[in-house]
Amino acid sequence: MLDWNAVMQFATKGNPTPPRRVQKTQAQWREQLTDNAYAITREKGTERPFSSGLCEAIEPGRYACVCCGSLLFDATQKFASGSGWPSFTQPAQENAVAYHLDDSHGMQRIESLCNVCDAHLGHVFPDGPPPTGLRYCINAVALTKLDEEGHPKADKK
Rank of each mutant, 00 (worst) to 15 (best):
M1H: 15
M1K: 07
M1E: 13
M1S: 13
L2V: 13
D3M: 01
W4T: 04
N5I: 00
A6H: 05
V7F: 01
V7P: 04
M8H: 03
Q9I: 07
F10I: 02
F10P: 07
A11C: 10
A11T: 05
K13A: 06
K13Y: 02
G14V: 08
N15P: 11
P16A: 01
P16F: 02
P18A: 02
P18T: 03
P18V: 01
P19F: 01
R20C: 06
R21N: 08
V22E: 08
V22R: 02
Q23R: 14
K24T: 09
W29G: 13
W29M: 15
Q32L: 14
Q32C: 12
T34L: 06
D35L: 11
N36I: 05
A37M: 14
Y38T: 07
T41Y: 05
T41Q: 05
T41K: 01
R42N: 11
R42Y: 12
R42V: 15
K44E: 03
G45Q: 00
E47V: 09
E47Y: 08
R48E: 12
R48H: 10
P49Q: 04
F50E: 03
S51L: 00
G53F: 08
C55P: 06
E56T: 09
E56P: 06
A57E: 13
A57V: 13
A57T: 09
R62P: 11
R62H: 08
Y63D: 01
C68P: 07
F73I: 10
F73P: 02
D74L: 14
A75T: 00
A75N: 04
A75V: 05
Q77N: 15
K78S: 12
A80K: 10
G84N: 03
P86E: 01
T89K: 06
T89G: 08
Q90T: 02
P91Y: 05
P91T: 06
Q93R: 08
N95V: 01
N95T: 00
N95H: 00
A96T: 02
V97S: 01
Y99F: 08
H100N: 13
H100I: 01
L101T: 15
D102N: 10
D102P: 05
S104F: 06
G106M: 05
R109A: 07
R109V: 01
R109F: 04
S112Y: 00
S112G: 02
L113D: 13
C114G: 03
N115E: 12
N115W: 02
V116Q: 00
V116D: 01
A119I: 03
G122W: 05
G122C: 04
H123D: 06
V124K: 02
P126C: 10
P126E: 13
P126T: 06
D127F: 11
D127W: 11
G128M: 02
P131C: 11
P131A: 12
P131N: 06
T132N: 07
L134Q: 09
R135E: 04
R135G: 13
Y136G: 08
N139I: 07
A140I: 04
V141F: 06
V141L: 04
A142E: 14
L143K: 03
T144I: 10
K145E: 14
K145W: 02
D147R: 11
E148M: 12
E149W: 15
E149D: 15
G150E: 09
G150C: 08
H151S: 08
H151E: 11
P152M: 07
K153P: 14
A154E: 09
D155R: 12
K156R: 14
K157D: 04
K157P: 10
